[in-house]
Nucleic acid binder design. Structure first.
Length: 493
RNA sequence: CGGGGUGUAGCGUAGCCCGGUAUCGCGCCACAUUUGGGAUGUGGAGGUCGUAGGUUCGAAUCCUGCCACCCCGACCA
């Protein structure tokens, strides 16, 4: 119905790009790889932020803010960390411009070269651990549970709106602990927080797991992740939580006096989710008519569209609409009454479908006569005539929003189950990846060499070693070497 | 950085081969009729043809340099 939105089945990637632009979520900016997040898109991000922030605080974390710039020397203090990020860092070399002598504009003032160049943060471990050194002396200072909401820059070769941009918004939690066990518990806890958020709020089912050494965060001893399945059968890493061991504590010399009077290095974690979650949200649920938003994250949950001829009818309908709005707002439902006379009802229907508003109420003269309204669901596009006398409207809508939330989760869950295939031979492995896509559950011999080889041959990577992996004797799907359990392979974003 | 492609109104495009001052659609503005699934008609506004130079009486069109973007590869937690 949507005018010209490409079909998912024809060109998934074009569909995604167009949808992001047409639904007013984001657009490309003048700077390559950087996006403008538009008001509607940003309001969805704000809802995500608000809920995540709540969950972080419930688990004992507080927010702080660290600087955008990192001295270049900091980055190289942790060897594997710098190796992981060096190739995509933006560097500040000067601090002043001046007018060009030929009057053609401004140029970098060569006199204003920085003594030490600054890196625009690709992540903040280094600047934060250099600060933690001053904050931590005793076990009494631990644990330190800090989160920051920030932007980071990673100079990616190829970018896509929300999924991979040169600058993106995220949160990064950085915690410090007295013991290894406590740090590990924290790492797992935050992975669980992410999984809960993805499933309960985004309605996106995820697989919890550990990363292989190849896919691990640069500087971490262990990386936990949540992996989601998109409608085109590709996997999307939706969030990561890293157990840093004592790596950063050693790199930045962060020690504390323990209860026994000895001096120990601190144990660390870091964890983050980004605006990439927007991409996951869009790709998990939306259809050829546009966005489908889960009610819990929709900026507008209910839109009321009046159908009328003339001012008298509009006035009568507005009165009814206002009554309904009051009731809905009392129970915390966000509702918009679109009484603009600059667009016709049909146009508005299509518009709110494109924008993924979960519930649409239409009220016309016929409804006023009959004491009804038309209620339409975005997720399955069904419509019903609802008799206002049959049930309080707020109850009706609350239960409907709930039902939609559950229903889109279930749909995404069923899709992922359908797209998850156990394979036992190399031939099967390749053919499933080529024809069906999705997660391929297979045995692997545990070596990086095999993982690399499989990636080279099929472009599939090990998304994770699922936490619920069953112990099962088997043979690596590629080398035939012994394996103790299945891991999940997929082509990924 | 290699290979291919594209730059024309806010967006999408025709014109380029074969040189003569820019086409069409959407959108925008005005008025009228419309309003239960993206209305119709009439009138109107809007363009340094990416950029710099060259050839020519004359360049969107031909030539050269540069820039930007897109696709494929390399790259990417």
């Amino acid at each position: 119905m949507s005018k010209g939105l490409p079909k998912r089945s024809e060109d998934y990637s074009l569909w995604y790009n167009e949808l992001v632009k047409r639904a007013d979520l984001a657009e490309n900016s003048a700077v390559r790889g950087c996006m403008v997040i538009k008001p509607y898109g940003y309001s969805i991000w704000e809802k995500m932020q608000a809920q995540l922030d709540r969950m972080f605080k419930e688990t004992g974390h507080t927010n702080a803010y660290f600087p955008l710039f990192i001295p270049k020397s900091y980055l190289s203090k942790e060897a594997s960390h710098v190796e992981g990020f060096a190739k995509e860092c933006a560097v500040v070399t000067h601090y002043r411009l001046k007018n060009a002598e030929d009057g053609t504009g401004v140029i970098v003032d060569p006199e204003a070269k920085l003594e030490e160049e600054l890196i625009v943060r690709p992540t903040s471990e280094t600047v934060i651990w250099s600060t933690y050194k001053n904050w931590i002396q005793s076990y009494r200072d631990l644990p330190l549970l800090v989160n920051q909401w920030a932007n980071v820059v990673r100079w990616e070769m190829r970018t896509r709106l929300f999924l991979r941009t040169a600058e993106f918004l995220w949160q990064e939690g950085h915690t410090a602990h007295a013991t290894k066990e406590e740090a590990m518990d924290e790492t797992v806890q935050m992975m669980n927080v992410y999984a809960q958020f993805a499933e309960e709020y985004m309605a996106v089912p995820v697989v919890k797991g550990r990363k292989t050494e190849n896919e691990r965060f640069a500087g971490a001893d262990e990386t936990f992740c949540i992996e989601a399945m998109m409608q085109d059968g590709k996997a999307l890493q939706a969030g990561t939580s890293h157990f840093l061991g004592q790596n950063f504590a050693k790199a930045f010399d962060v020690k504390f006096a323990n209860k026994e009077g000895g001096l120990d290095y601190v144990w660390g974690t870091s964890w983050g989710v980004s605006t990439r979650l927007m991409g996951a949200l869009i790709m998990a649920h939306s259809d050829d008519n546009g966005l489908v938003l889960p009610p819990k994250l929709a900026p507008i949950q209910v839109v009321i569209v009046p159908i009328y001829r003339g001012d008298a009818e509009l006035e009568a309908i507005s009165e009814k609409a206002n009554e309904i709005m009051v009731e809905l707002r009392k129970v915390g439902i966000s509702v918009k009454f679109d009484n603009r006379d600059t667009h016709k009802p049909g146009w508005k229907f299509a518009e709110y479908e494109l924008k993924g508003v979960p519930v649409r109420i239409a009220i016309g003269p016929r409804d006023l006569e009959n004491g009804t309204i038309e209620i339409a669901r975005r997720d399955n596009l069904s419509k019903e005539q609802f008799e206002l006398s049959s049930q309080p409207i707020q109850e009706k809508i609350l239960s409907l929003l709930d039902e939609i939330q559950n229903s889109i989760y279930q749909k995404a869950f069923n899709f992922r189950e359908e797209k998850t295939t156990e394979v036992n031979s190399w031939e099967e492995f390749k053919s499933v990846l080529e024809t069906k896509g999705g997660f391929v559950s297979a045995h692997w011999d545990g070596t990086s060499e095999t993982e690399d080889k499989i990636k080279e041959l099929t472009k599939a990577t090990i998304r994770c070693i699922p936490l619920d992996q069953k112990e099962e004797e088997g043979q690596c799907v590629y080398t035939g070497n012994p394996s103790k359990g299945r891991v999940l392979f997929a082509k990924a974003y």
